[in-house]
């Protein structure tokens, strides 16, 4: 590589961008639970090359923090289990350590634009709500009370009334019916659902848990 070009954006020099741009870092890092304003000051001082170079200790830290934020959003979208009532209130429980609840709410809002979405965050012990107009609000109420309060003044929607039955058994039956014993691949399965995902509220009592490794860690017995 041409050494004189080292000061340029690595994307232009080597054709491939690594890490995150300054703009991305400044916009997303404040969502991290361990974020402090000093980090932004440091990001603004450092050249883009160093920010993107995963070899530098600062970039390493930033990339790790960004990954934690992005993974938490993705896992919440994947593994949050929700319920819907006949008045168009979709609700569920999440465990979000970082400040990403708005991103998760927006995902559900896009899918259910005519519903009010309520997500109770076990970490903050608050219920966050997004309404039909995409306005986000935070309530210091447990989930059940929040859902009752919102549902009170809403009309019954006929096609949501149709699906007021328990779906857990249906999903369990469907899941078991799809299992092909001769194709079982525990290693690949664990790669898809890492052990720590079972701490999420959606998977805590999920049927997938039956298939995790029987080998217990020592601290499970303590």
């Amino acid at each position: 590589m041409n050494k004189k070009k080292d000061c340029l954006d690595p994307l232009k020099v080597i054709g491939r961008a690594k890490g995150f741009s300054r703009r991305e870092l400044i916009s997303k890092l404040p969502r991290h639970s361990k974020f402090s304003p000093n980090i932004i000051q440091q990001i603004e001082k450092l050249p883009e090359v160093l920010l993107r170079n995963s070899g530098s200790p600062m970039a390493k830290k930033l990339i790790r923090m960004m990954r934690e934020v992005n993974t938490e959003v993705y896992r919440a979208i994947q593994f949050t289990r929700t319920e819907i009532n006949n008045r168009g209130v979709l609700y569920g429980v999440v465990l979000l350590k970082h400040r990403v609840i708005d991103l998760v709410l927006k995902y559900f809002h896009k899918r259910w634009p005519q519903c009010v979405i309520c997500l109770y965050n076990e970490h903050t012990r608050k219920t966050d709500i997004i309404n039909e107009k995409a306005t986000i609000q935070e309530l210091k109420l447990p989930l059940k009370e929040a859902v009752e309060k919102i549902s009170k003044n809403r009309p019954i929607i006929p096609y949501f009334e149709d699906i007021q039955f328990s779906g857990k058994e249906i999903f369990d039956t469907l899941y078991q019916s799809q299992n092909i014993v001769e194709r079982e691949n525990p290693r690949y399965f664990k790669q898809m659902i890492p052990d720590k995902c079972y701490e999420l509220p959606g998977l805590r009592n999920g049927i997938e848990k039956r298939y995790i490794s029987r080998n217990k860690k020592l601290n499970k017995f303590l």
Binding site: F79, K110, N179, E184, F189, M192
Partner: peptide
């Protein structure tokens, strides 16, 4: 309208063969 297909690749569950 309910639902979206803009974001493919989100999987909510995996069978034991991965």
């Amino acid at each position: 309208w309910i639902g979206a297909t803009a974001s493919a690749g989100i999987c909510h569950s995996y069978t034991p063969d991965g």
